[in-house]
Design a protein around this nucleic acid. Structure first.
Lengths: 217, 217
DNA sequence: ACCTGAACACCGTTCAAGT
DNA sequence: ACCTGAACACCGTTCAAGT
């Protein structure tokens, strides 16, 4: 029955009014639609169908796919910032430990955010993002620096500590993610705590270098 | 002049004899061709043209693009293993420090190898690779473990040390690579040495926990 | 100013052969 | 057993409109 065609589905969608989509809706819809899909498999036409808009409407707000992914990275980052719990712990060691345990917990629970923020997948050769997002001006990190200084850790040392622990935690997330599908010989286990504790123990003598009782020498 | 067509370039290539390509040639050609191209921009048809073979010949040896990329990762890993210099240094601390400085130097100098091995880009959701390649049975690492034991570092502690330093170094490579295009506030600088030294200093008291003169308590 | 489908030059992959 | 071009269903992106 070729011409009867009860379901002539072509262009079933009605035209949307102006202002009925905006960048925020597109980004939110993309997070919803792609939460469990590896980034290589994303497709703008498919996203358009999911959002019930024409493909070209997405291109009105984001000139390329990379630009959309970059915007999603910014959004994931903002959400991550917001969800970081308040500082907790007594003394600089506990403050740092809890900060990076929270850091890890939030990103380990969200593969998409981890891919966007830590692995920075899908934004190749980019000038769209300004380098490592984690290291950028981050209000919560400023809070932490203030608290560390109040707890007696000099500013220079606090920066070293932050950078070292940030690098370690991101490396841990990366290795953890790689080992997900096929756990190999050396599995992470709960070694994150070991690594953090060890780094903190290494920092300790830098704060009080004359603790062994040998005088100021 | 529609029909004269002095340069009818269609199918200018002559048919290749059987056995004139093999997986190794394809992988080698891919490294040559793609050394400076972000992986998202790779194209099998273009690679075929570069290798002067039909597209389908590549698909005879690699059933999907992912399979080819996985094979390239294995190859990059083998080359990395080979290029790691011999162990050097006196005592476990120097052995570990030099090992991971070499580790970093080799991968920092080769973006493609770093993407394949450390970031594991282009092999999404894979069972093709067995988790983190770095952590897999690696002859040079076995050597290192033997040398560490000979230098007085207990096996259990050596494994912790290796894992922690491996995670840190990979995190460093990742952050370094992210910060490449647009250097942000906290730049790595030569902080790799700081981080490694700090981790080693943290490990030290685990080896000789009674060094402060307080007895075995 | 915003929304749209059809069109373009590709892509990964398969088909249906050729030798 | 290996090599092949043409074909298929897609993709990212642009064109040329519609309102």
């Amino acid at each position: 029955m070729p011409s009867a065609a009860g379901k002539a589905e072509k262009s079933a969608r009605t035209r949307r009014p102006r202002g009925s989509i905006n960048p925020a809706d597109i980004i939110a819809g993309a997070f919803d639609f792609y939460r469990d899909t590896p980034i290589e498999q994303w497709s703008i036409p498919q996203l358009a169908t999911h959002l019930d808009v024409g493909v070209t409407s997405i291109y009105w707000y984001f000139r390329t796919k990379r630009e959309l992914v970059a915007a999603m990275t910014e959004a994931a980052l903002a959400s991550f910032y917001e969800r970081m719990p308040p500082l907790r712990g007594e003394g600089w060691e506990e403050l740092l430990r809890n900060f990076f345990l929270d850091f890890h917990r939030l990103l380990a629970a969200d593969d998409l955010a981890c891919d966007l923020i830590v692995r920075q997948i899908g934004v190749p050769g980019d000038d769209l993002l300004g380098g490592d997002p984690v290291a950028r001006n981050w209000p919560r990190a400023q809070e932490l620096f203030a608290a560390l200084e109040a707890a007696g850790l000099p500013a220079a040392l606090a920066q070293h500590a932050f950078f070292t622990l940030s690098v370690y935690t991101q490396g841990f997330l990366l290795v953890e993610r790689k080992g997900r599908s096929a756990p190999s010989a050396a599995s992470p286990g709960d070694d994150l705590e070991f690594g953090i504790t060890n780094i903190l123990r290494g920092l300790r003598p830098l704060l009080a270098p004359t603790e062994e009782g040998r005088g100021v020498a």
